[in-house]
């Protein structure tokens, strides 16, 4: 199958530092790719070039078979690439459905010429997308500040999905969550995959990644050092790839990492 997103030879420098060096990778529809690597390996920088935060210094990005120039976050969103950052970027003082529609509010006319927010419509649509994702939130009228970490994550994901994301990029989606909520987010990722969405997950939690990813891409010091199908590898091998061959002999226990 053809790639949904494919990046070829992407390079990004910050002054003298080469944060991402000549990296190529791809994601298919309905596939979860885990992006792994130590702190500073260049994972975030790589995905930020796809989500329009940084412009690459070299290389090309193809989306749905066509080369695309992603020069702003808005551009990425407009071609259905949605990114979930760790801090989620929700307005805590607004309710769940207002956040799902933030910046793209649905309006209706009263007295034929005054545009007002169509709250009923936004509430109904938001309920629809949450149902589709099998997410339960007590009330969509509740402000975000009243929701738990997992529920916030769910709202942020719903927002992306509602706006028809084809590719969802998640940078450390479970980092701030409790164990039960981590499970829920992982379930959600599986559900999205079954609905044909391509997903890139960055995570430090190796076992989380193993439980949802189809394929792993491992980066070290800005370079892609390996790519493995999940069925043909195991956590030990991945750890040794992350830390580098020279350290494998030291037998770092996976549980000690992070």
């Amino acid at each position: 199958m053809e790639y949904l997103l494919e990046v070829k030879n992407l390079t990004k420098r910050f002054g003298g530092l080469v944060a991402v060096n000549n990296v190529s990778m791809g994601v298919k529809e309905g596939e979860v790719v885990g992006l792994l690597g130590d702190n500073g390996a260049g994972k975030s920088t790589l995905i930020k070039m796809v989500s329009g935060v940084y412009r690459p210094d070299g290389g090309k990005i193809f989306f749905m078979g066509k080369e695309v120039i992603i020069d702003s976050p808005m551009k990425a969103i407009s071609i259905a690439i949605e990114t979930l950052y760790q801090d989620l970027a929700l307005a805590e003082n607004l309710n769940a459905y207002s956040n799902i529609f933030l910046g793209r509010e649905k309006l209706k006319k009263v007295l034929k010429f005054i545009n007002v927010l169509d709250n009923d419509y936004m509430l109904k649509e938001s309920k629809g997308v949450l149902d589709r994702l099998e997410i339960e939130i007590p009330s969509l009228r509740n402000r975000i500040s009243m929701l738990s970490g997992g529920q916030r994550q769910a709202v942020a994901i719903s927002r992306s999905i509602y706006w028809n994301a084809k590719l969802l990029i998640m940078d450390e989606p479970t980092a701030a969550l409790g164990v039960t909520e981590q499970k829920k987010v992982l379930d959600l990722i599986r559900l999205l995959r079954s609905q044909g969405i391509g997903i890139i997950v960055i995570s430090h939690q190796l076992y989380d990644v193993f439980s949802v990813a189809d394929r792993l891409v491992i980066m070290r010091r800005g370079e892609k050092v390996a790519e493995r199908n999940i069925k043909e590898t195991n956590p030990d091998e991945i750890v040794s790839l992350i830390v580098g061959a020279e350290k494998v002999s030291e037998k770092i226990c996976p549980a000690d990492r992070d």
Binding site: P73, M74, Y85, D87, A91, E92, L94
Partner: peptide, 19 residues
């Protein structure tokens, strides 16, 4: 009005929502 509240609630969220 909605965007006014959003900016006060989280500037980041407002920017990333394309406001």
């Amino acid at each position: 009005g909605q965007h006014t509240y959003a900016i006060g609630g989280s500037m980041d969220a407002a920017v990333r929502a394309g406001i």
